[in-house]
Write a protein that binds this DNA or RNA. Sequence first.
DNA 1: CATTTACCGCAACTCGATTGCAAAGATTAT
DNA 2: ATAATCTTTGCAATCGAGTTGCGGTAAATG
Lengths: 136, 136
Amino acid sequence: MQTEEEILKIKKVKNTAARTVVLRHLLSLEKAQSLKDIVNALPYTDRSSIFRTLKTFEENKVIHSIEDGSGMTKYAVCAEGCNCDPKDLHYHFYCTNCDKTFCLFDVPIPNIQLPKNFKLQQANMVVKGLCDNCNR
Amino acid sequence: MQTEEEILKIKKVKNTAARTVVLRHLLSLEKAQSLKDIVNALPYTDRSSIFRTLKTFEENKVIHSIEDGSGMTKYAVCAEGCNCDPKDLHYHFYCTNCDKTFCLFDVPIPNIQLPKNFKLQQANMVVKGLCDNCNR
DNA sequence: CATTTACCGCAACTCGATTGCAAAGATTAT
DNA sequence: ATAATCTTTGCAATCGAGTTGCGGTAAATG
Ligand SMILES: [Mn+2]
Ligand SMILES: [Mn+2]
Ligand SMILES: [Zn+2]
Ligand SMILES: [Zn+2]
């Protein structure tokens, strides 16, 4: 896995204290995080700095955002080589029990046959249900 | 197409003035509407009444809600026979140019092979891009 | 008709998201 | 190295979609 310095270098985002700590934090977790989650986990970094860091990361394809319907946008680090193009699309799974949101990088997204003359640019595909941990 | 009285009868929702006007309005449009859209279109009905009407409709499967990433939840009338089960799932298309959101009732949703032990309950699948009208 | 229950309108409130601004830090030009 | 310039950060304030409390009105029940 890439370190946060490598990622920022590749994505041409200047490395600052806040960016390093936020990205390192996101890399350390397997599930997508909300702004609130991150603020709670990083008590020495200001909310608005984290917010602007996330915006910068998103603009530069370091992370992508997920609207999982929980009311808070969540963020996850992009996979290596991701450019947030349609080809990089993947499902997200939101567990209605434990409130975790995962990137399902391994589940292929089938070709979607849109109506005539519709053009696909992006997608937000959230599948909801119970995760393996909650489904017992 | 069913009238609003027929729909409310089938879904066992009491018919009131506000409900009639909101449902009739939704039926008259082909695209999903936000609360704000509806409030603007129905100046003689109070925002909170419309809000509670939408909640009632959603609970009773008269309409379904769509999180299209625009920041406002949108609502669309359920198709005849819809019970908002996974089998009634369909894609939604959000046009990034004209901001319209459509139900793609005719585009089949393929089977999603979730990871082991994950259980599907619902989904919010929003495809984004240009609609036929904006893609020229 | 009296009582109970549901619905409506208005105003207030919640909370995630966003922004203005000044201080601190980094970069570039003299 | 110093000054000028640009960027990032922290704090407080603001925005806006969504939601709720409450009193009044209408509908349903007996
Ligand atoms: Mn993802
Ligand atoms: Mn729909
Ligand atoms: Zn779970
Ligand atoms: Zn369009």
